[in-house]
């Protein structure tokens, strides 16, 4: 469990850093500037991730998309960690208490993603 959670967190951070760094580097090549100028507004986290995924699958690549995917990856990392914890306590440990605790955390996070 420790090893799985540890590597999950590490993988999430590394992937997100690579995506953001690649986005910035690409933007630099395209425009000669390092600081991206665009806004993220009027969207909750699930819509944001949905839009990014849609652009990814339709092949609409851009520096902004890479940076967005990096941010999305970062956000999804602790979220996945909580999800993995639910599965671990429920399926591997059969620990009812901690399955309920982690399920509560997962539900609150999911709710907050949609609500705001």
């Amino acid at each position: 469990m420790e090893t799985l959670v540890g590597y999950l967190l590490l993988f999430g951070v590394v992937l997100s850093i690579i995506l953001i760094a690649a986005g910035v580097a690409w933007y630099r090549l395209q425009t000669g500037r390092l600081t991206l100028e665009y806004q993220i507004s009027d969207t909750n986290l699930f819509q944001f991730i949905g839009q990014d995924a849609q652009q990814l699958f339709t092949g609409a690549f851009s520096p902004q998309l890479l940076v967005n995917l990096g941010i999305a990856t970062l956000i999804l990392t602790p979220y996945s960690r909580v999800f993995v914890s639910v599965l671990y306590f429920g399926l591997a440990e059969h620990n009812v208490k901690y399955t309920l605790f982690t399920t509560f955390v997962f539900s609150v996070l999911t709710f907050s993603f949609f609500r705001y």
Partner: peptide, 17 residues
């Protein structure tokens, strides 16, 4: 973050660096 995100306070130009 999910609260701040929806309110548009997260500027990607600052977040990246």
């Amino acid at each position: 973050t999910s609260v701040y995100f929806a309110s548009g306070l997260i500027d990607p130009g600052l977040v990246a660096p």
